[in-house]
Design a protein around this nucleic acid. Structure first.
Length: 521
DNA sequence: GAGTTTGAAACT
DNA sequence: CAGTTTCAAACTC
């Protein structure tokens, strides 16, 4: 009875007897037979000779394969053979795929994909998930097994047709599904093999993007209803979700990974309070595409301002306590989109040197470069003067000796400056505005940056002014006699010092990594 | 374990 | 293509 009803009930208006996967997945002619591998071959096909064909397909073109290593069956949608055939998968006791691979390889069924912070740690192969379909006969994408391209096996489904006994009906259903959506059995998550491990969130996150995007409305994309969340990826611009909280930097998302629901509840309460005061519901239901570009996030702000914002938030990331006021302001805003904007621009990357290398260090370093440049310029100018004078008098040897002495003096100063680490007062004492001496463009650029920071601060307008000044100085520099020697000496000093600094950083970083181990939880 | 909620898939 | 219905998983109690 079931048999007769299935074909007719599910019969498409246009039956697809032979699925043209070449049209769907492109010309498979590029699929070459791989050279014989010296490594042990996978087990021979037990049911279908088509089994081998699976290995001819690149991973991206066999999304119907579920990677879970226990015995399973998988559809064989071979572009080459234009067939739709189930393949019973052979248990492979040796091959244990990492879970992250499972996530990538298993196409649909993000719902069965493990959540990073919980199941990812368990790399033990799990039993195939069992569906509980009642009305779909396991022949629609509602059925996880069908969607994953595997036979139902030991499921709790009712009136299941996703099995060998109902092969005809199943093939028709596959045809219907593919006709409706040629990509129905392709992975929903376009993920890369890379992963990011966030040391703060104890989180392994597959870098990927939902091809279609989710359309969540109420879950905030922070429940497994959301396919993105379930696949452990951030919502992307493909999503059309509302009130999304599954974005990088989301406090709610972080709280979930931390199992720290108190934070969320406290913030929600505070947010509600603020919303009431502000006369806002606090629950906007407008569409809020994620991962906006910066210029979309900060309308009306200059690029420099945006950079400042990001920089400030990055600094906040490094030292949250240093910006405690914004802790409230960036999270307890009445407009949820603002929350996203504020939080999503934050970087979650944290260098091992984050606590070691402070902004003040950079400032001091720049000051040091300025001092070195001026010292080199001054010394070189004196040296050139002496050389000219001595050359005129014909005392060549004295000229050479003087040059060597001046050079040594320059290096002594350099050493002195380096040893003293050039404190802030020293740097502030430098007359940075005095750029009459010829300087190399590179040095000028460095000095200009320093000037920008120390005198004007970072703003786009000042940046323009600086660029103008820089151009004038470069012109002066290139027009001045003796520029080459001065520039060379300045650059030598600066680069030498910079090299020392970098070496120190590398050493410190290496020590820290060795001491702390890999950046894990 | 029953009932509810949710969002993708299917349908109109 | 938008709106509605169906469906099964996720979730709550």
């Amino acid at each position: 009875m079931e048999q007769s009803e299935t074909a007719s009930d599910l019969a498409p208006r246009k039956l697809v007897r032979q699925l043209n996967f070449a049209a769907v997945y492109g010309d498979p002619s590029h699929l070459k037979l791989p050279p014989p591998s010296p490594s042990p071959s996978p087990p021979p096909p037990s049911h279908s000779p088509l089994r081998l064909q699976l290995d001819l397909l690149p991973p991206g073109q066999r999304p119907w394969l579920c990677s879970e290593p226990q015995e399973q069956q998988a559809w064989l949608y071979s572009p080459r053979l234009k067939l739709v055939s189930p393949v019973r998968r052979i248990p492979h006791p040796v091959k244990k795929l990492p879970v992250k691979v499972l996530q990538v390889a298993k196409p649909k069924s993000p719902r069965s994909q493990p959540q990073c912070n919980v199941e990812l740690k368990d790399t033990t192969p799990k039993k195939q998930k069992q569906c509980n379909c009642k009305n779909s006969r396991c022949l629609k994408l509602y059925c996880e097994c069908f969607a994953a391209g595997i036979y139902c096996d030991g499921c709790n489904c009712v009136n299941c047709h996703n099995n060998v006994d109902n092969e005809a009906a199943r093939q028709e259903a596959v045809g219907i599904t593919l006709e409706r959506n040629p990509n129905a059995f392709r992975p929903k998550i376009a993920s890369s093999p890379l992963e990011r491990r966030d040391s703060k969130e104890c989180e392994i996150q597959v870098i990927g993007k939902h091809n279609k995007g989710c359309h969540c409305k109420k879950s905030g994309c922070l429940k497994k209803y959301c396919e993105c969340f379930q696949a452990n990826i951030l919502c992307s611009e493909n999503c059309k979700c509302m009130d999304c909280k599954n974005f990088e930097g989301s406090d709610e998302r972080r709280a979930i990974f931390h199992k720290d629901y108190n934070l969320v509840h406290i913030k929600q309460a505070a947010n509600a309070t603020i919303s009431r005061v502000a006369g806002s519901s606090g629950y906007g239901t407008h569409l809020t595409p994620k991962k906006r570009k910066i210029h979309e996030m900060f309308p009306g702000k200059s690029a420099m301002d945006q950079t400042d914002n990001i920089t400030a938030q990055y600094q906040q990331e490094i030292d949250p306590m240093a910006s405690s006021p914004s802790f409230l302001s960036d999270s307890f805003v009445s407009d949820p989109s603002n929350t996203r904007i504020s939080a999503s621009s934050r970087s979650t990357y944290r260098s091992v040197l984050a606590d070691f290398f402070q902004p003040q260090n950079v400032k001091n370093l720049c000051s040091l470069f300025v001092v070195l440049s001026q010292v080199a310029a001054k010394t070189n100018a004196e040296m050139i003067g002496k050389v000219d004078q001595q050359t005129k008098t014909g005392n060549f040897e004295a000229s050479v000796a003087s040059s060597s002495k001046s050079l040594q003096e320059t290096r002594d100063v350099h050493q002195l400056v380096c040893d003293d680490h050039v404190n802030k007062d020293e740097a502030d004492a430098v007359d940075i505005a005095n750029y009459n001496r010829p300087l190399s463009p590179e040095t000028l650029a460095l000095m200009c940056d320093e000037q920008d920071d120390m005198i004007f601060g970072n703003s786009s307008a000042n940046g323009v002014a600086c660029n103008s000044t820089l151009q004038n100085m470069i012109q002066k520099s290139s027009n001045s006699d003796g520029c080459t020697d001065v520039c060379r000496e300045q650059e030598r000093l600066i680069l030498t010092k910079f090299l020392d600094v970098l070496r120190g950083l590398v050493t410190h970083g290496s020590i820290k990594v060795i001491c702390l181990g890999p950046i894990l939880c």
